[in-house]
Amino acid sequence: MSAVDIRDLRVTFGGVVRAVDGVTLSIERGEVVALIGESGSGKSVTLRSLMRLHPPRATKMEGTIAVEGRDVLAMTPRALADYRGPIVSMIFQEPLLALDPVYTVGEQIMEIILRHEKVSRKEARARALALFERVRIPSPERRLDAYPHEMSGGMRQRAMIALALACRPKVLLADEPTTALDATVQIQILLLLRELQRDLGLSIIFVTHDLGAAVEVADRIAVMYAGRIVEEGTARELIRNPRHPYTIGLLKSRAHGVMEKGTRLDAIPGAPPDLARLPPGCSFAPRCAAAIESCQIEQPPSFVVEGGHRARCFRWKDAPAQLGAQALGAA
């Protein structure tokens, strides 16, 4: 049984905005999968769907989501509340916004423990302290009594991770956990996540727009564009042998190695489509240099490149050569 099994997930906001449009993804136990894509590609929406965190009245969710064998979309509110925390929990992008400003971080960690387990306050506090030590927060005893605004960004994200791990979840969702942090702190947090994942056997879904961060922690990468997964495969395959023109574009738009001053980065031309009016064919076609006529008319199916490596592109065989992807693998 997979830790997470998403089948043909469709999420529509306000009846018109198709934020997620047929995502199928499965994550094995102990596996780290990165969802990458630009803003509005549906990666965070997919992630939040796993905990059903969207406002229920304005959101329509179709398809199936199974987490540790539980049918998430069929859960009653009570079952959903019991599921959030001990089975799945989430690390948010900006802990300063995701933590309640008027409670200390210690109280907030104790709160989730007391919510899900029958333990005394004293025990809950001891657990919170142990978690702070686990995520290597210096002088943890004192920091438990700090308010979120009294901590530094990196420290807050560690506290957020401690909070997320408080009820020993099986699946951890990380929503751009390093985006709001300094570059040096980003690496520390990524290494911490990787270490915790190994020690606790966690399955992690990690949303980011940073390919470097994805490669650093993920076993597998799924690239999202306009609400669909356009390419997925192991981190290695995707970097060495990208097949979808969008993945190739993302790889080319990174600054790698030492760049001459004045060298231009290859940005992907154009802008992502309006999710309320998606084109009938491939949604990347309007921006794609390798697009052919059928791309405008028909949605490409998911082609198997090799093993678990799949790409949703009619031209997956010859587009990489045309777009000069080979040079990337060597770089």
Partner: peptide
């Protein structure tokens, strides 16, 4: 409308549990 309310839901708090936070804020 603040993000921390989503954070509280993600902790498994029920509406009553969230209400306590709203009051204190």
């Amino acid at each position: 409308s603040q993000e921390f309310v989503v954070g509280l839901r993600a902790k498994g708090l029920t509406d009553a549990g969230i209400f306590r936070h709203v009051v204190k804020n």
